[in-house]
């Protein structure tokens, strides 16, 4: 059984893949009947958590499907779905998901699981984030201090979460001149979670990260968790099957099989049992309805 993972396609190579897929699309229609390959687009942070590597062999053994995983940014993942280049999308950006559904790109959308975000910073915490009560307050403190804040700036799920907190705090840090009044050095990095974490540590600044990436890298980072457990920082993941009517080549049955398997007792049990550094990373959603 062939097991392929398209590991972290570099973002540069992506357009190439997409155009190649478009070129060859006409040729592979006949394979529809019993297509054993399911293509899943997900975010780099999901892939980096290791959850999919953990689930993959179980899924393949129990359903007989092969799973190809394309890990890109949230925006690119949804675009792949909209173009019909993948069969299933696993993302965590509510607003974008709803947009995707209302545009008719998605067939079925289900809440799959939840993990959470944490606010990280230097141990001495010059902005005083540790003492705050919620994420909004923490961001306000950061904005009022002479510190660096590194933003993903890549329209990833994490970036959307960060932006919604800034909005709740009534701050637009990207606005030109916003830093003049406060002293905040706001850096929009436009890079992946791991890179942003290393940059933050290097600059002695603050950032917001998903717990999975943090757990995987924390031994290498001079950062500490300053804020966690806030309900606002929950990160719900959705699984969406791509609407097949627009794209003949979409593997509808395979997509459905993946969705059902993940939402089954078995799938949810495995998700709950997945740990990084001894800590459970994802909590499967109790009732899998949107």
């Amino acid at each position: 059984m062939c097991l392929t993972i398209l590991r972290r396609l570099t973002a540069v190579a992506l357009p190439l893949v997409i155009s190649l897929a478009a070129l060859t699309s006409g040729a592979c229609r006949s394979a529809e009947r019993a297509n054993p390959r399911v293509r899943l687009a997900t975010t780099t942070s999901t892939e980096a958590s290791g959850l999919l590597d953990f689930l993959l062999p179980h899924f393949q053994r129990e359903t007989g499907y092969d799973l190809d995983i394309v890990a890109v940014g949230t925006g690119a993942a949804l675009k792949l779905g909209a173009n019909g280049d993948v069969d299933v999308v696993l993302v965590h950006a509510r607003a974008l998901e709803e947009e995707f559904m209302s545009a008719g790109h998605g067939q079925t959308r289900r809440k799959l699981m939840v993990n959470d975000f944490i606010i990280l910073g230097p141990k001495n915490d010059p902005a005083g984030v540790r003492a705050t009560e919620n994420a909004t307050q923490a961001f306000q403190r950061i904005a009022q201090s002479e510190v660096s804040f590194v933003s993903r700036g890549d329209r990833s799920g994490t970036h959307h979460m960060e932006q919604s907190i800034w909005a709740a705090a009534g701050i637009t840090p990207e606005a030109p001149g916003a830093a003049k009044h406060t002293g905040l050095r706001f850096l929009s990095a436009g890079r992946g979670m791991a890179e942003v974490l290393f940059m933050t540590a290097e600059l002695g600044g603050y950032t917001i990260a998903d717990r999975g990436t943090w757990l995987a890298l924390r031994d290498k980072l001079a950062l500490v968790v300053l804020h966690e457990g806030d309900p606002d920082l929950l990160n719900p993941y959705s699984i969406i099957t791509v609407a097949p009517k627009k794209h003949d080549r979409v593997n509808e049955r395979g997509a459905e099989a993946l969705l059902n398997w993940l939402l089954s007792e078995r799938g949810r049990g495995l998700i709950a049992g997945f740990t990084v550094g001894g800590e459970q990373l994802f909590r499967p959603t109790a009732s899998p309805t949107p």
């Binding site: 540069v12 992506l14 850096l187 436009g190």
Partner: peptide
């Protein structure tokens, strides 16, 4: 440029790092 500049918006972002970012965001 990516490793040493960090692709920071309006500070160290260059054409090539911006291309990498925009392609990743799906903004082709």
């Amino acid at each position: 440029a990516m490793m040493l500049g960090g692709n920071i918006h309006r500070q160290t972002r260059t054409m090539t790092t911006a291309i990498a970012l925009d392609a990743g965001k799906g903004e082709f």
